[in-house]
Design a protein around this nucleic acid. Sequence first.
RNA 1: GGCCCGGUGGUGUAGCCUGGUUUAACACACCUCCCUGUCAAGGAGGAGAUCGGCGGUUCGAAUCCGCUCCGGGUCGCCA
Length: 602
Amino acid sequence: MHKTIACGDLRPEHVGTTVTLAGWVNRRRDHGGIIFIDLRDGKGIGQVVFNPDLSPTSHTVAEQFRNEWVVQVSGEVRPRPPGTENPALATGQVEVHATEALVLNPAQTPPFSIGEGVEVDEMVRMRYRYLDLRRQPMQENLRLRHRVIKFMRDFLDARDFVEIETPILIKSTPEGARDYLVPSRVHPGHFYALPQSPQQLKQLLMVSGFEKYDQIARCFRDEDLRADRQPEFTQLDLEMAFVHQEDVLELIEELYIALVETLTPQKRLLKPFPRVRYDDAVSKYGTDKPDLRFGLPLADLTEVAHSSQFRVLRDPVAQGGVVKGFAVPGIAGYSRRQTDELAHFARERGASGLLTVPLGGTAASLDDLKLEDIPSSLARYVSLEEVRAMARATGAGVGDMMLIAAGPASTVNVALGQLRQEMGRRLGLADPNHLAFAFIVDFPLLEWNETEGRWDSSHHPFTSPMEQYWEHLEADPGKARAQCYDLVCNGVELASGSIRIHRRDRQARILRLLGYSDAEIQERFGHLLEAFDFGAPPHGGIAPGIDRLVVLLSEGAESIRDVIAFPKTQSAVDLLFGAPSPVREEQLRELHLKVVPDEEKG
RNA sequence: GGCCCGGUGGUGUAGCCUGGUUUAACACACCUCCCUGUCAAGGAGGAGAUCGGCGGUUCGAAUCCGCUCCGGGUCGCCA
């Protein structure tokens, strides 16, 4: 080794010993005579002193040191002189007095500072990702990620799970996300697909009798990106035989509680995880991934609005829509500009408009409230009693503001749900040190696809409906509820899973319901159906996302790009390697491919 | 594909709305010199920018207009 101890491991117990350190120059302070170097390595930072009186030769070498040079230093560990200890450093009680110094590799001035916590443009960070990763916050993020994954593996190993790798080159799946395709050289015109998840493979492993399978699995989806989506991402994929839904939920709850309490004990946790029905989540929070760190629940105002004379509310109801609203405490004094901004926010998310209803004035209670205390267009069209009814329904009091939207239920829920999240953030109700986990259950099995005119699986076609819905499934598909569950936390979907169908006849019924012909079923799912004929056990599983979890557990990661070593941009470009890129004509020929130029761009 | 935000020395920002008193400003980093107990060391000096690109308006464009590229956010999309 080029070193005998890590820079970050220096402690008072080493005083008197002679050590050799190697690392990067984090910062240098040259006093003309004495020189201080903060030397950084993977374990942390330690201070080295170069004193010309002690060692003129090493002092001369150290005069050339610059930030990020890779250097090796030997010397004696001594306690720092009284009054010069640095409590901000774990190594701050001691320092190394250099007697030998060596430049292992000089370095150019980096494009951005490694040692200081300056915000740097993400484009530059990704272009020089290896330098970005050298920075402390990114080191912490990736080390946390490692510990999370190791914890999961150890936890499952102790419960008899077997980690099994599944292929990356596999068959293109028919529906769902767009596949990344890989052309076959050996079979002209044929393609592999990268797995969107190992879904069918893990079900086949259940048929194989492994009973408990898990995998830290890379998944690929060629869809447009968001802050919490990358073209490739990592899941803890797991599946169990002979389980009911509650068995899976209990395992996951136990895993997440143990993981958080062990790795991030500073985070507050709500135990046990509430089970929230899908319908309740949507009606109360407008979304199936509610942030439960705060209240601000949505209230249904359709009844009140229906009888009112206000067309903005009445007409949408007459057309089968709903009116919903929620109370935001203490913001009755918002300026016109601020309320306009909220309305803009709602419209951007699909709402036709937003009624802002401040309950202002100095009234002691709702009963004393006067119409002139309500600077809102609502007050011009509805009675004071109707405003009071809405306030009672939303829980608004004097000094609060009601935010109300009308329209089709799905539109209103999306807009108000996101507005609720935004208000929680603005009012500081969403404490980042609080993790509010919850299971969302009782999902609908199917969703009507308006554009395609058919039923889609809300989860995936292998999800089993609850037992009682099999009987009238074809007669009333929309009514069926699934044995399907999500784990959500702080407004983020963290995991999704289900009890699967394990009998051929039932799987075929679902696929036919989804509009597949018998020939298509055989071509696309034949391998799975055939497996079910050979003794498939009842089974189910879940797939927790690793990237989003690490973001929630980390201090300061703002997107999953901050917890992925080499992420891609929103346009799926790798700025470090410059991928994707054209390939040689010869490579294309081997793959029997010809590139057709874009018609518009030529 | 739609909408929104951003792009100014190596980094982070100001200037842009209201075009010319700006030789494009400031901080950090960088280079030189001074400095023997600092830890965001300090002091003095210096170098460094086709203002993302192309085109237009104008006597004059970082500033106004159009197109375009790149990054980010979001809707669609993500079984």
